[in-house]
Design a protein around this nucleic acid. Structure first.
Lengths: 144, 144
DNA sequence: ATTTAACTGTAGCAATGGCTACAAATTTTT
DNA sequence: AAAAATTTGTAGCCATTGCTACAGTTAAAT
């Protein structure tokens, strides 16, 4: 046995992990952001729009939308457009702002638009407030 | 209907998505990296080490290790330590290097160690070669 | 050598996110 | 108005990653 690790027991289960894993949270963020974008650019958001946007089947979208409705982020009725709840709107705003900052930060590093767009979509979910603040600082310093 | 989107059909299924989604890939990267680290720091890597490291149950680790064995990234036998295949080793090296660069990059932005460590673990998986190169450039320029 | 502790495996459950196939509703065309 | 096309929903499958509970192995202590 390796004594330096021997006494530490495995931690008990986190009851929240099951129902709202990190990955599911990222999905929620991506979806509210996309819904907000579609409403802004096309006046409404449909299941189909999200399916094309995320390149998944409409079935997958439909189920995720259902989950987010039950989590009080989205609102919809059968065969009707998808809208955001107040909570969903708040989240969308936060996510969009963060996404924008990450994107511009990558651009400011000299990365091409396409790559910056791609990478920012993955990176945004893992940028803490502190790191976001550092990126803002960097952008500000650069423009002075 | 909105004509600007009307003609684009939903794409056919990607046969790889099912068996090796993006999320599963990230898991693979995290695991080979952790295995390499444990072997380096403790001489071997056990299921238990990974369970503590990732803060999940040993059952979860056991199953993920099985998957990665079947994907020819890890090697193990029942009740025996876990080692890396050649392929696993290569992947681990790449991942560790990338992780290290992202971490140092965040530090160089003025982010505290703890935050940088945390964020780099999430961000690393989404940093493309081009963005990684930009980070390297940035670090180099700063140290001159 | 036995007992005890620690580690690992297996069975079986749940949530999430993929899919195809088919059914139903809505919208567009004719 | 009827037919056709599009959109959305439902049923039912799979893989991944969580878990608890229990069983089996290995290592440590007595």
């Amino acid at each position: 046995m390796r004594p330096e690790l021997a006494k530490k027991a495995e931690k008990p289960a986190d009851p929240f992990r099951q129902t709202r894993s990190q990955h599911a949270n990222e999905t929620a963020e991506d979806y509210v952001e996309a819904v907000a974008d579609f409403i802004e650019s096309h006046g409404e958001c449909r299941v189909r729009d999200l399916a094309l946007h995320f390149d998944v089947s409409h079935v997958t979208v439909s189920r995720i939308v259902s989950r987010l409705v039950s989590e009080d982020l989205l609102i919809t009725e059968p065969y009707r457009p998808i809208t955001l709840t107040g909570q969903g709107n708040q989240l969308a705003k936060r996510v969009k702002l963060r996404h924008q900052i990450v994107f511009e930060f990558l651009l400011s590093l000299g990365i091409d638009e396409k790559t910056a767009r791609n990478d920012s979509e993955g990176i945004e979910h893992h940028v803490s407030q502190k790191t976001l603040a550092a990126m803002k600082r960097f952008l500000k310093d650069k423009n002075e």
